[in-house]
Design a protein around this nucleic acid. Structure first.
Length: 145
DNA sequence: GCCAACGTTGGC
DNA sequence: GCCAACGTTGGC
């Protein structure tokens, strides 16, 4: 899962323990949250749009998917007037802190590693804020910390 | 700040 | 359903 550390970093998650992952407004990401994510699933926490983009830590899924309350709040920047409580459009899961990596594994390192050529984050035009990580990629990334 | 690569919107 | 215009993401 990607997060801009200026908005919410791995240190914020460490402080908070558990956090509702609100604000996802992309249908592909929504579908993965709603249909594929399960309690206990491991998550790589990636810092994007910052000075040193990097995998910063590990989290885990801490709830089933449920409707994102910010979609109903007219004051929220995530407000969606076309959504309703009867027919919610956007979902989220709670995310729990597990640990920080011993050191951040930077995007640069990921790009340089031949075994990660087919890792989604390295592929052109990847803009999804959430995507599944293959076991082999998970293990390789953690071997770099 | 630039720009590539999307995704979304809306006219037709 | 097509596609141009526009908005967003995110690395650099």
């Amino acid at each position: 899962m990607k997060s801009e550390p200026d908005a919410y970093s791995i240190d914020d998650l460490k402080r908070d323990g558990t956090e509702p992952w609100d604000g996802i407004r992309n249908y592909q990401a929504r579908n993965m949250i709603r249909d594929d994510m399960r309690i206990g699933d491991d998550v790589l926490f990636y810092h994007s749009s910052c000075k040193v983009p990097a995998v910063a830590g590990i989290a885990k899924v801490a709830s089933e998917a449920y409707p994102d309350p910010t979609q109903y709040d007219p004051r929220s920047k995530y407000y969606d007037e076309k959504s309703s409580e009867e027919n919610p459009r956007w979902f989220l899961v709670d995310i729990a802190f597990v640990r920080k990596l011993k050191r951040p594994v930077t995007l640069k390192e990921l790009k340089e590693h031949p075994a990660l050529a087919d890792f989604r984050l390295n592929q052109r035009g990847n803009r999804l804020s959430i995507f599944p990580v293959e076991k082999k990629h998970w293990e390789l990334i953690l071997s770099l910390e």
